[in-house]
């Protein structure tokens, strides 16, 4: 993913702060990566290069660690994150059906972010609410019994929300409709 405007500066600033705070022992590599991801939402290449330099280890070691552990993500999370539980109980009652529905609607694969960075889709292991399987975490809120219709419902709610917001920002829905018919 290409960096957005101003993102480069933000990355450099946070990485520096975290390294200054944590110190430069190799043992700190994982906690540093965790903190950087906490701040930035993902691990951009640039951040990993800077961390390698800061801890004085080869960049490939940092890539190695970052790709070894499931927690680290290489692309930015969407404004809204969907995490589909693929724990045993959820899988058995249709967790994969839920993932496929999101993939179909968002036109991305699991692990990816939509190009407008609005939504991202991931799979997670048991979130501990097997009673409500299949479970999806929508921005960390638990949604239980997620059927494909429910997936549509969840996405629709976000769409209406965006439209409302855009309406507020002076761009009325009519205008948008107009633009659509122009296209």
């Amino acid at each position: 993913m290409t960096l957005l405007e101003g993102e480069r500066e933000v990355i450099l600033k946070h990485v520096k702060e975290i390294l200054d705070d944590r110190g430069t022992s190799r043992e700190n590599l994982i906690p540093v990566l965790q903190q950087v991801q906490d701040k930035l939402g993902y691990l951009p290449d640039l951040a990993m290069q800077k961390i390698a330099a800061g801890l004085d280890i080869p960049t490939v070691d940092v890539y190695g660690i970052a790709t070894f552990y499931n927690q680290f993500r290489m692309n930015p999370p969407g404004d809204h994150q969907f995490k589909v539980c693929m724990g045993t109980a959820c899988y058995m009652v249709g967790g994969n059906i839920a993932i496929e529905s999101f993939e179909r609607r968002l036109e991305i694969r699991e692990g990816e972010t939509t190009p407008d960075r609005k939504f991202s889709l991931e799979r997670v292991a048991c979130v501990g609410c097997c009673t409500m399987a299949p479970v999806v975490l929508v921005d960390e809120e638990v949604e239980g019994h997620v059927t494909p219709t429910r997936v549509d419902g969840i996405l629709l709610a976000f769409e209406t929300e965006t439209e409302k917001e855009e309406g507020k920002n002076g761009e009325g829905i009519e205008e948008k409709e107009e633009r659509r018919s122009d296209a």
Binding site: S25, R26, E27, N28, L29, I30, P31, L33, Q34, G64, I65, F68, Y69, N70, Q71, F72
Partner: peptide
Amino acid sequence: FEGSGAFVCGEESALVSSMEGKMG
């Protein structure tokens, strides 16, 4: 110590490696 989500890190020697900042 917060683990980073790798099943194999539940294995004790891998767990310790990951605490030392290495691959599990």
